[in-house]
Amino acid sequence: MSDVITLKNLQKSYGQVKALKNISFSVKTGEIFGLLGPNGAGKTTTIRCLTTLAQPDSGEILVGGVSAITQPKQVRQKLGYVAQEVAIDKVLTGRELLNLQASLYHLPLSLAKKRIDQLLNLLGLQEYSDRQTGTYSGGIRKRLDLAAGLLHQPQVLVLDEPSVGLDIESRTIVWDFLRQLKLAGTTVLITSHYLEEIDALADRLAIIDQGEVIAEGSPSSLKDRLGGDRITLKIREFANFEEAQKAKEKLSSLSFVEKIIINQTQGNSLNLIVTPKSNPISKIEQTLIENDLPMFSISQSRPSLDDVYLAATGKTLIDAEIEASNNRDLKAEKKQAMK
């Protein structure tokens, strides 16, 4: 299938901060593509460049073969955009907002009315359509925003963190809707810092970390590429590093162990990669006992997207998330978003 979006060597700095160091990925026509990464990784900046809200310092952005940098207006016509923070005018009713949106995309009056009625119906919004949007719950707002983004039948719908702030029921509705959208032939690009969301929805994904793409592919191919099963071992609930180091040395000698990473932010737990189908748990237990080491918990799993992330960055997504939120300058981010 052909690529509907191509990003090549995108770079962008805000003052001294390099928000995007080198972003390249492509989205194929008709797929759901996920952009995964912790907060502050550069997802939103990438999306702002793609939707022509921001100008990259260098690099190339093509949407349906048209450059977003030199022909932004044509690209705007091809994209639908659902921002992270639902921006609605609280004084307008849902229908009034959609009418405004339809005019901003120059839909003829009769077509606008038809599309608005269809989408309100499809998204179960009829009973809300004549109430002011200030009275809406988060889930209803998100649905209204989806309707707004789809009025002009864009080739690609871009959603920035579609399930942030949504309750589980609303999230399910949004997910189901995005799947329907894909079946109907619309390409969907979502960003998320939720692994489950990308795992559940995306046909392919790119993992972004600190302004760089560190992996790209389908969830299963990325997991398969990692090979073996995962074992998470905690010798104590909070072990000290020396003890974990000792356990690592002893366990490394086992034939089926391919690799061990000590995860310092998770109480020095050990992440082991083992040859599939090697039945390792009892042998690990035995090795620990022989060396006078305790065992608090052990679990085995197939590789997850988190493991993909861990393998590429040396930390789990949750840790990166916590680290990022500690380093965040909310004031500076607000400023960027407003520009």
Partner: peptide
């Protein structure tokens, strides 16, 4: 569904 959600 397809009619309403398909891209133009």
């Amino acid at each position: 569904f397809t009619e309403i959600l398909s891209p133009n």
